[in-house]
Design a protein around this nucleic acid. Structure first.
Length: 923
RNA sequence: GCGCGGGUAGCCAAGCGGUCAACGGCGCAGCGCUUAGGACGCUGUCUCAUAGGAGUCCGCAGGUUCGAAUCCUGUCCCGCGCACCA
């Protein structure tokens, strides 16, 4: 039809934007709004997830810019990484050339989608100018004691031929990238000691109110903070520390269990062949599948409170890297300890019983803990009484009740893992769990408060070529020595095709001189995890060309935090945790004054195709030829709230396309009417004086107000619907009769600006045809002239129209010629208002001045009381105005004369009118 | 098992203390339109109802409130995270 050539329009405006340099942050910007999307990995093609991510950030950036903000909206490339190496290997090229080609393709794609980036700030992590700062930062962290070099048992992916961080191991055993089963290897490796920040990383989450709860929760889980106590048990020759989250159960400890990897076990097996063999046998099984095997070491430990001797076992159910790698076995109050004790015939002692009358502890059955049942039954009078409800719960919650016989009461009540009141616990007997814990921690020397974390240090070594060389030389005399700043960057040698690590093969490159003693030394051949690159890239964007430092601390102080960061949940434990860690570490180095990098985080949903995540093999159609790239971005914004998943459907894509066509046709035909006085718009100049002019003008205001609100909340799908509604109304308006030139001009001009953040090429074209001032990118966001109560006003009109239809339908009025709408008299609104304010209308009544017969008032009050107070969002004048302006819609629909007026007391119609519900008469 | 997020009319989905029988889209149905034509516009789409009425309804069951899709409690189902984690 209209000849909207999206390809041509796109090309033209991109050219103009480039010429006008519209996306470059002005040099004199002060505290710009910093909008950031995910750092794209240079795979060579965008997928739907990218499009969605960048459509959201771009729409927000454009919106803020139109609102008058300076906006920092940069883009760059996460360009290091194993896939490039593999691609180069397969194609007989090198990773650099391959990566550069990918970047070119991706930049073009981003541009075709109309994303407005400040390309003058483009950064690429595989540039030595970038990665030298990785090295610089590494050295600074090293000096600050945040880097460790240790032998460790690490995750090794045989397929990628490199080690992996804990966070990169999926389901505890698969490589996150290639899904190969991960192996364990003993290697000397580099670590960032992120655990030094475990407490702050955890605590800081509470303050991140701009982050989705889901992401915060994932991080909490990952950090795995656990408060408890470290308890020491004396051994004949030394002592052993165990961690417990329930020190209140300490009197129930009947054995100790050490993990097979525990230091002490190593010592014991050194001079006990038989024990060594037994422990080896235990280690055969995979951790997690070992069951409750165990061997008695023959040692006995002294209970710090009772002085009793407890046997010490080696048991694989105790994990080496949790807590201290040793536990006190409390079979009475811990499921696993219980299972172990049963297996090995160890005593089970109950020292905590459910608080009397409580029963709200959950997780365990009622009743009296076993060992000393007789003596304590009396203290739990609630037990017999709560049988109905609690009994069934206990049955399902306590396995083993159906074991033969009931002689072993232990089975029915222990382990009891809830909290409660202590029994048989020496001087702590009768305290409740919490108080007992506090006292034990404070009073017993062998029990010290401790907090443990699940979080491990960040393994950053990678045995691969395409990454940042770790700036260390190994000197036979001085050991590991950091490369001095003046010699940075340590650049990558030329790529060679080899099966192992190409850096290992680069003999000449490896040869170095020790910075300390000047003697011959060897370069470190590991490179850094690429997550290091992305841990601080948001800082490099502040001053991308800076040669003296990774970033300008003054700018950072002024411009941070990132105001809006959009990304996917899949980065919650990797990237987003590292980002926070780096920020804190850099703050401690004195380079930053902020300790959190991102103010508002938006976690985008997935794009699904047939219920699965969209990917190259799953219908990944970034730029449908037919509709143009802009349709794609408009579609992903219109389809759903940004945080929710949605299904890609051809229908919704077409809806996005249709709106573009609709807007284009509207503007083109309007301009045609203005300039050549032809087409479907019958323009007149009457200063918007006809009621329907006012109606449309108000509707424009309402749309502007609502769309603005929706943009503030990132609800682009709602904004899209609003824009479509207004376009539709405009069409109805012009089809109904003559239209006011000024009203129309404002409507189309606002439409162009409202759609600009979502469909910038189209908007630019519309704006231009309308002779808008300058470019729409730089235009002012429209403001409503009169705000009113948009939603309430629409509601009233819509409801009234529905009522008219209903009456016409129910009464079967053939051809209505006259429709009267009578708004309730003032006193009814007054009373309704009073009723809203207080529960008792009659009590409030005397203060009101009501110009109506008492009987009518009483009747109305009674009616209100019966219905419950009936809030009317608009006052009488408001209703009158709304209905007057909207009357033409009824005229158009029924081809009848419409009269709107205020009800007068005594008039029959006024009696039936209520606030919010005008009386209707149809003739 | 623990935690987080969800369950709204045929489907998708908005609403999150009061004009809520519940916006919007898709699908479906009726009407209009001589044209934006693989359209477009209007109307309808829980049940009953001859003047705008009544009933039922927002996973299920209770509760708070003058009033609940909206708040609280319990429960079931789905998605995600963590987990022989002490």
């Amino acid at each position: 039809m209209s000849g909207y050539d999206h390809a041509e329009v796109r090309e033209f405006w991109q050219y103009v934007w480039e010429q006008e340099d519209v996306y470059t942050l002005p040099a004199d910007a002060t505290d710009p709004t910093y909008v950031l999307g995910m750092f794209p990995y240079t795979s060579g093609e965008l997928h739907m997830g990218h499009v969605r991510n960048y459509a959201i950030t771009d729409a927000y950036a454009r919106y803020r810019r139109m609102c008058g903000d300076d906006v920092l909206h940069p883009m760059g490339w996460d360009a290091f990484g194993l896939p490039a190496e593999n691609a180069a290997f397969e194609r007989n090229t090198d990773p650099e050339r391959w990566t550069r080609a990918c970047i070119e393709r991706m930049r073009e794609e981003l541009e075709s989608l109309g994303f407005g980036y400040d390309w003058s700030r483009e950064i690429t992590t595989c540039d030595p100018a970038y990665y030298r700062w990785n090295q610089w930062l590494f050295v600074r962290l090293y000096e600050a004691g945040l880097v460790e070099y240790t032998a460790a048992t690490v995750n090794w992916c045989p397929d990628c031929e490199t080690v992996l961080a804990d966070a990169q191991v999926a389901e505890g055993r698969l490589c996150w990238r290639c899904e190969s089963p991960v192996e364990r290897r003993e290697l000397d490796q580099w670590f960032f000691t992120i655990t030094d920040y475990a407490e702050e990383l955890h605590e800081g989450l509470d303050g991140l109110s701009g982050w989705p709860e889901g992401v915060r929760e994932i991080q909490r889980n990952w950090i795995g903070r656990q408060e408890g106590a470290e308890i020491s048990f004396e051994l004949p020759d030394g002592e052993v520390e165990v961690f417990s989250a329930r020190p209140d159960t300490v009197y129930g400890a009947t054995f100790l269990a050490l993990s097979p990897g525990h230091e002490l076990v190593g010592e014991l097996t050194d001079d006990d062949r038989a024990l060594a063999d037994a422990v080896d046998a235990l280690r055969e099984g995979r951790p997690g599948e070992a069951g409750y095997d165990g061997v008695d070491t023959g040692l006995s430990a002294t209970h710090p409170l009772t002085g009793e001797k407890l046997p010490v076992y080696v048991a694989p159910y105790v994990l080496e890297d949790v807590g201290t790698g040793a536990v006190m076995g409390v079979p009475g109050h811990n499921e696993r300890d219980h299972a172990f004790a049963r297996e090995h015939g160890l005593p089970v002692v109950g020292v905590v019983e459910p608080a009397a009358g409580g029963g709200d502890d959950g997780g365990a059955g009622p009743g009296t803990p076993g060992a000393n049942a007789d003596g304590t039954t009396g203290t739990d009078p609630g037990t017999p009484g709560v049988d109905a409800d609690e009994g069934t719960e206990a049955d399902s919650g306590t396995p083993g009740t159906d074991a033969e016989g009931t002689t072993e009461t232990d089975d029915t009540v222990l382990p009891y893992t809830g909290e409660g009141r202590l029994i048989d616990s020496g001087e702590y007997t009768d305290f409740d769990s919490e108080e007992a814990r506090e006292r034990l921690l404070a009073e017993v020397e062998a029990i010290e408060p401790t907090t443990i974390y699940r979080l491990r240090d960040w393994l950053i070594s990678r045995q691969r070529y395409w990454g940042t060389p770790i700036p260390i030389v190994h000197c036979p005399d001085c050991g590991r020595v950091p490369v001095p700043e003046s010699e940075l960057p340590v650049e990558l040698p030329e790529f060679v095709k080899t099966t192992g690590n190409p850096l290992d093969a680069a003999e000449e490159w490896k040869r170095a001189t020790c910075p300390e003693c000047g003697g011959p030394a060897v370069r470190e051949t590991d490179t850094m995890d690429t997550f290091v690159d992305s841990s601080w890239y948001f800082l490099r964007f502040l001053s991308p060309g800076l040669a003296e430092a990774p970033f300008d601390p003054e700018l950072a102080a002024e411009w941070l935090p990132v105001d809006l960061y959009v990304g996917g949940d899949e980065h919650a434990t990797l990237h987003l945790l590292y980002l926070r860690f780096f920020t804190k570490a850099l703050a401690d180095l004195g380079l930053l004054d902020r300790r959190e990098p991102v103010d508002r985080l938006l976690s985008q949903g997935r794009v699904l195709y047939d219920g699965e995540k969209m990917s190259t093999s799953r219908g990944n159609v970034v730029a449908p030829q037919e509709y143009g790239a802009e349709t794609t971005r408009l579609f992903v914004l219109s389809a759903a709230h940004p945080t929710r998943d949605f299904e890609w459907t051809a229908n919704d894509v077409r809806a996005a396309y249709d709106l573009q066509q609709e807007l284009y046709e509207t503007v083109v035909s309007f301009v045609d009417a203005v300039e050549r006085d032809r087409g479907t718009w019958r323009l007149v100049d009457r200063d918007g004086s006809a009621p329907r002019d006012e109606y449309v003008a108000r509707e424009v205001d309402r749309t502007v107000a609502v769309v603005t609100e929706e943009f503030e909340r990132f609800r682009y799908h709602r904004a899209f619907a609003e824009i479509r509604e207004l376009a539709r109304l405009l069409r109805r308006y012009r089809e109904h009769g003559t239209v006011d030139r000024g009203v129309c001009r404002r409507a189309v001009g606002d439409l162009a600006r409202l759609v600009a953040p979502m469909a910038p090429h189209l908007a630019e074209e519309l704006w231009n045809r309308l002779d808008g001032e300058g470019l729409v990118v730089e235009a002012d966001w429209p403001e409503p002239e009169t705000v009113g109560r948009p939603r309430a006003e629409r509601r009233l009109l819509e409801r009234t129209r529905e009522d008219v239809r209903e009456i016409v339908d129910v009464v079967e009025i053939e051809d209505p010629t006259r429709i009267e709408l009578v708004v309730a008299p003032a006193w009814k609104h007054r009373i309704a208002e009073l009723a809203r304010g207080s529960g008792d209308v009659r009590a409030a009544l005397p203060t009101a001045e009501v110009d109506a017969p008492a009987a009518a008032v009483d009747a109305f009050v009674a009616e209100l009381a019966e219905r419950g107070s009936d809030p009317a969002p608009l006052d009488g004048e408001g209703e009158l105005a709304v209905l007057s302006r909207g009357g033409w819609l009824l005229e158009a629909e029924f081809d009848a004369e419409v009269e709107v007026r205020r009800g007068v007391e005594g008039e029959e119609l006024a009696e039936t009118a209520r606030p919010g519900k005008p009386a209707i008469h149809i003739g």
